[in-house]
Every structure is written in structure tokens, then in C-alpha cells.
Design a protein around this nucleic acid. Sequence first.
DNA 1: TCCGAGCCACTTTTT
DNA 2: GTGGCTCGGA
Length: 795
Amino acid sequence: MFAFRSFRARNPDSMSTELSISARAMARLPGADAGELAHLVGLNPEQRAAVEATEGPVLVLAGAGTGKTRVLTSRLAHLIASRRAQPWQILSVTFTNKAAREMRERAGTMIGPAAQGLQWLGTFHLVSALILRRHAELVGLKSTFTILDMDDQHRLLKQVIAAANIDEKRWTARYLASLIDSWKNRALSPDKVALDEAYSFANGKGAELYATYQGRLRVLNACDFGDLLVHCVTIFRNHPDVLAEYHERFRYILVDEYQDTNIAQYLWLRLLAQKHRNLCVVGDDDQSIYGWRGAEVDNILRFENDFPGAKIIRLERNYRSTEHILAAASGLITANRDRLGKTLWTEESGGQKVLVRGVWDGDAEARLIADDVETWRRQGGRYAQAAILVRASWQMRAFEERFILLGIPYKVIGGPRFFERAEIRDAHAYLRLIRSESDDLAFERIANTPKRGIGDTTIAKIATASRAAEIPLARMAATLLATDELKGPAKAGLKQFLMDLDRWRLRSREIPHPELAELILEESGYTDMLRADKGPQSASKLENLKELVQAMSQFDSLAAYLEHVELVMDVERHEDGDSVQISTLHASKGLEWPLVFLPGWEEEVFPSKRALDEKGQKALEEERRLAYVGVTRARESARISFAANRQIFGRWQSVLPSRFVDELPPNHVEAVSETGYFAGGGGSAAEKFAAYGPLGLDVGAGFGSGYSSPGWKRAQASGMGASSSAAPIKPKIIEGESRLIGKSGPGDAHFAKGARVFHDKFGYGRVTHVEGAKLTVDFEKSGEKRVIDTFVKAA
DNA sequence: TCCGAGCCACTTTTT
DNA sequence: GTGGCTCGGA
């Protein structure tokens, strides 16, 4: 640290090859300042090699739990401490904001305040935006361009489609967005889109619409996520002088999760690394799970060819999981064909086998897992040590409901994200309109929110005129007010709105931006609108807006704040105590927990039917990698489960265990059905479980499986199992609940039958039945539910 | 212009 | 089971 601080004072330009060599020599001296080598302490030989191979292209194949992040941060520290580069001469790109944050934090603990100098550490999109702001004019944008999020993009595309007289039902904006995205992922401009692909939308209009969309973006002085990368690539290609500037700046390049890079990102990196060739990429082909988003596993498979002479270092020692977990995951992934191949090993022998359990239905699965969590907790574990990882977010609901019922605290990772909530986006639209009058998308979003009489027809009138005159909506609205074009409530509302905007814009120069936000939300009537709304969520929406104002105060200016939210669609989550984590498998990558639940391992759910339909074998391998990622998140215990029946689209369907269940190596798995134990190995899981008749797979095998039948529904509603198999489960639940009731005891909140109550999730309702602390409430919106009294307030 | 009723298709996964 | 959209009446 010491050596480092004194070094910071030096002029960065004085760094010469000579100094660099001497620094290198110093770093290798065993007797060198211990502080300087601190970042190498405790690394295993392979990790150390990866850290010290600073020059030339390097590919670090880092299996799950092999200390990948550690290597990256140590390498960063090493480059700086050995004086090969100043912090601002290193480009470190990650895939997610979370990873970037973690890297910055960990680098901070290693190299101290110098980590502040790591200005070029961030996601591909963040770094691209920084670069693009400086050269925006080279691609026809102003440096103040806005970055559209998916919602903006979607609305814009809808307009484009409608303007082209294409049936939006047949050809959805969503689909066009995905096509355009996939083109941008490959850095294809509208004129480069292959004919057959252009034909995949509205009989050949694909490329044309893409071009129209890009034109609209230019008029709006905006770009979408994909553009950030593509524009940079365009600039680097067409302006060698600009590229040279960045060659000079970035002496070393580090890339995390290289297996997730798409073609545009690959080109971006190749252009930037072309001169010094000090490119170090870290990744794991077995954890490539973003193919649907354009990631090319090929990038990592081909690295040696792309960068001749590349060093390849394999990190295979796993520090995370026990032997059985690792072996189960490894066994599973061997079914994949296209892989570089690694053999993970660990010194943690034994441990629990991977538990595979079959249950009757999704509810039973939620009960089982919730019970496990409570057992874990009773035995001294913490909630936060457990995670439930699902394939798709709709699967989360069952667990959330169960946890709410039992009072188990939980947190959804990557759930409905803060900045994507409607109220937050509305607030942002107001602020964006203050920042720039020409933000048409923002204008459209909030012109009539809250209602001020400016309906669709009025907006359409303004839009037509504004497009013809090529001036922003807000300005055209002002022009139209001076004419007789508009009348009645529309005119009055619009006039008031424009006056408000002007006033707020003036105020924005006088008062701090968080205060401005509060002012706008009050004066626009937005908060009043929410207060008047008695829906179950309006209270939490108001809370979110408060949180927004809070978040804003952490930035110097409104502009800085907006720039941040546009790029970092994620908010730093304050760790609020001890709660079970519920996450998608995708969002779980890079994380770990002692206890990991992997529910929903059923055909068509996981592997996902949709993925298989679209991409076939390739998707299957990706789904399998997802399974691999899931299992390798566990340190002590991985518990896979599947149900025989599941409600999909609101209908009961009988489902089969996932093929992945059968691919698990039997020696490392302990399989359990609700009715008893059986030995794993041989035969399909479906057969094995079916053999335990009561589990009921055979029952559901018949057509139109009786589970949507009235009888089944009645059985479900009455809480009784429909077959003998469900019966043994029931007592368990009752036990679980009474235990909880005992815990919450004669609580502070008592409700009588007939009392009106409010619940955060379910809204308002009336108590229909009281049983200790357990209430049955008939909710106005969501029907009858059983809840614990501490979760409702008197209303 | 607004709002409710009824119809629809839909659910991967994210910067 | 949800949310988005259309249609008809106030």
C-alpha cells in the first residue's frame, strides 16, 4: 500500500518501458516489500500464474468456484502495484453492474484509495457510453443523447410498426425488438442485415423497419442498449485516430465472463486490444447461459485462434462445494458436446449427496422447501444462507406466497427491478423532460399521468404536427395552444402542464435536485393520485418514490443521476437482514449459498420448452449449463425437486421429471419421493417415481389428466390431497403452521371476525375466520387467503 | 376523455 | 393467473 501511494504522485506519462521492466523485476523479488506482494498471497499456483501472466493474450478458464473474481482483482492489483499501469490505464469490463461493483470493492481492499482511479472499470455498456459521450457527433448524435431502456424502445417500435401499417398483432413490437437486438448483437447495420433475416419480419419489412427505427432514434437524439456497443465499434472502425487514442490509454484489458460476450463485444474488444495485445479474458464455457441474448460461446472456444500465442490457464480447483455436489454437476455437464473440458476437483471430500425429491404438485414443493428452510433455521442456520433458484420468474410466486404465509423473510434477487417500476419510470419521465424539452418519449409517457384531460386524440394531433414540423412534442404542444386546434379540457390541461414544466425547469436551477423531484411529484398531482388510489400497491409505490428521492441525493446533479439510472438499471441493495434468497438461475451466476434449492426440474419447465422449440439442441446444451450453474451454487447442500403436477397458465397439467434428473450421476445423488426412499441409478426418473404408485405419475398419465376436474379442484380447495399420496403431507403442514402460531403467540395485533384489514401483497379484505394468530381473510382483489395476523394491519 | 367488462396471448432468461 | 388490448357506454 505504502509503495503504492508514493507511486501515485508520479506523472503517468513518465512511465517508460524501462520503468516497467524494473518494476517487473521488483515484483518478482522474493524480498520485495511485503505490502506490494500482498495481492499474491494465498493464491494457488494456477491462480498465481494467471495473475502474473500480464503480457500478451491470456485466456483463464475458470470453472465454477475456482476463485475467478479473486484472480481478476489480484491481477488488477498486480498490474498497478508492479507499476505496469496506472489505474486509469486499465480497462476492465464485466457483464453486469453487480460484478463491476464487486470488482471495484475487492480491488479497493487490495490496493486502497487507488481503486478510485479505476475509471474504466464497468460493464461493456457503461464503458461504451463513456466513450460514446465523447465522440457522439461521429455517429450523428449529440453528446447529450438519452439511452432508451426496453420500455422506451418497445413503445417506439410500436409507433414504427403502426406507422408502416403492419398488423401489430401478427408482428409484435416485442418480436421486432428481439430481431433488432440480435442484429445489433452482431453489429449489423440495417443495410447489412441478410435478406432472409429481414424477411423474418412482416414479409421482408424487417430491415426497412430497423432503418426507420434508427432514423427515429437519431431524431430523438437517443440510442438503445445495443447501439452503445455498435456505435463504438463504428467509431473505432471509421476513425483510426480515435481508436489510437484508446490504444494509448488502455495498456491492459481485463474481461470477466468472456463466454457471455456477443459478436459486437468481441469486435469492440478486438479493436481495442489490437495494439498492445494485453488482453486477459476470464470465463467458463460451461457457464455460458446467455446465448439467447447473442452471447457466442464460440468467442471463448476460438480465443486461441483469434489471438495467436495466447496463454491458456485452467483453474480447476474448486473452493466452494463438497465432493458430491461437484461430482453431480460435473457428471451432468459431460452430456454436453461443445466444451473445452475441465476437471474440477476439491479437497472437501464427502458431504451431503445431492438430494432429488419428487413431490405431488407445486404447492407441495413450496411446502417442502419452506419446511426445509425452517428446519435449517431451527438447527442454527440463517435464512440468508439458503437460496431458491428457479428457471423462470413466474415460478417464484409459489414460494413467495408460502413464505408470506409462514412469515419467513425472503428477498427476490433480480426481481421486479426498482428502476423498471411504473411509478419510478413516471417520475423519471418528468425529470427527463426537465433535463431536455425534446425528450418526446418522456413527454408521451407522462403528458396524461396523472390524468389531466390530454387523451390519445390530443397526443396524436400533437404528434402528427410535430413530426411534420420536425420539432419536439413539447414545443409543438405550445404552438398548438396558440391556435384553435385544441379545445375544452384538453386545452386547459395541456396549458397547465406546459406551464408547470416551465416553472419546474426554472426551479431546477435554484433548488437541489432531490427537492425538485419532490416538488414535481407533489405539484403534478402524482402523489395525490397514488394517495387517492386504494389499491394494494399504492402505498408501496409512494414508498418507492421516497426511496427514489433518497437515491437521487447521492448524485451531484440531476444529469448525473439520470445518466446513472439509464445505464445501471439496478440499485445498490441495502442488505436488510436475514432473508432467504429467491432468484432465477441466470441471476444466481457468480453467487453461492450453503443451502440451495433447485425446484421445478420438469420437462418443458426446465429445460424450457420455449427454448427448445426455438433453438433445439443448442438450447438444450445451454439449459444444461444452466442446470450446472444451479448445482454449483451450493456449498453444502443442493436439493433438486420436481412435481408430478403443475399449474401452468392457470391450468393443472401433469408433468414429467426433467431429463437432467436422469443425467445426474447416481453415486452422488440421493433420491427421495414423498412416499419413501429409493436407490438412484438405472431407468428413468419417471419410471422410478412412477413405481411408487402413490406419487401419482400414472394417475396423471391419462389424457386430459383429471387435475383440472371439479373433484380435483374441490379437493385442492378443501386442502385435502386428491389421492392417498397427498394425505401424508397434510399433517406436516398443519404442524408447521401451528408451530408458527405458537411462535407469534397472542400477538399485539388481534382481529375479530368481520374486521377490515390491509395486507401489503393482497390489499384490503375482511376477516372471515380467526384461529389463534391465523386469520382467514376474504381479500377484495385476491379472494380468500389464510394469513398470519402480524402481516395485516387494521384498515 | 374515461372506465369497466370481456377477450386474448402469454412467461424464459438481461445490459 | 396476469396483464394488455378493444369496445361500448357515461
